[in-house]
Computed example of a mutant assay.
Amino acid sequence: MATEIIIASDTHGRSEYLSQLEQAYPHADLFIHCGDLEDDASYFNRWIFVRGNNDFDFNLDDYKILTIEGMRTYIFHSQRMPYYNREKALVKLALENDCQIVLFGHTHMAMAEKIHGIWLINPGSMTFPRDGNSPCYARMVIEDANHVQVELIHQEQWPFESPQQKKKNRYWF
């Protein structure tokens, strides 16, 4: 049996995206936010949150470790990781915690790579991407350790309209 996970990060107060993701993926098994929600996490009881560097007022954990389909998954914001050699440091963190997947945010740059047997997944930012691409979130499906699928879903493929798209689609006469 497979587990479908929707992953977001760095929404920076644009919490309507979380509700839109829930509506777009009603059968998803998990919703994970990798920090910088900048809202009250208690409003979103389907989501698992960790604290980002801009989540000052909320009682969130700095990291979480979940086991999903037998795979240990380390979830955190990553603001304390080095800028240079970040991937190497993330792989080391995963190995030190016996994890096969690391979900992280903070950089606002989407990535999904398997490095030295460790999945490193950053869903980017749904509000302020910094990599020259459009806003993004991630969808991951895990069947088992040998069957992990990750897709980065950029704004052009979102199954809902963002507030920015709605503004562009208005017609003025």
Rank of each mutant, 00 (worst) to 15 (best):
A2Y: 01
T3V: 14
T3N: 00
I7F: 07
I7W: 01
A8R: 02
D10C: 11
D10K: 09
T11W: 00
T11H: 12
R14N: 15
Y17P: 08
E22A: 06
A24H: 05
A24P: 08
H27G: 00
L30S: 01
I32M: 09
G35H: 09
D36S: 11
D36C: 13
L37A: 06
S42K: 13
Y43A: 12
Y43F: 14
F44W: 13
F44H: 13
N45S: 14
R46D: 13
I48A: 02
F49S: 07
F49N: 08
V50Q: 08
V50Y: 06
V50M: 08
V50C: 07
R51V: 07
Y63G: 01
K64T: 10
I65T: 15
L66A: 06
T67A: 12
I68H: 00
M71L: 15
M71A: 09
M71T: 14
T73D: 02
T73A: 04
Y74I: 12
F76M: 14
F76D: 12
F76I: 02
Q79F: 10
Y83E: 12
Y83Q: 10
K88H: 08
K88Y: 11
K88I: 12
A89M: 04
A89Y: 10
L93M: 14
A94Y: 12
L95E: 13
E96L: 12
N97E: 13
I101E: 02
V102C: 10
V102F: 03
G105M: 11
H106L: 07
H108C: 08
H108T: 08
M111P: 00
A112S: 14
A112D: 12
I115R: 15
H116A: 14
H116G: 02
H116K: 15
H116Q: 15
G117Q: 07
G117P: 04
I118Y: 03
L120C: 03
P129G: 02
G132P: 09
G132N: 07
C136K: 01
Y137Q: 05
V141N: 00
D144A: 04
D144M: 06
A145E: 13
A145N: 02
N146G: 09
H147W: 01
V148K: 04
V150K: 01
E151K: 09
E151N: 04
E151G: 00
L152V: 11
Q155K: 11
W158G: 01
S162F: 06
S162L: 07
P163L: 09
Q164V: 10
Q164G: 01
K166Q: 15
N169L: 15
N169D: 10
R170L: 15
Y171D: 02
F173I: 13
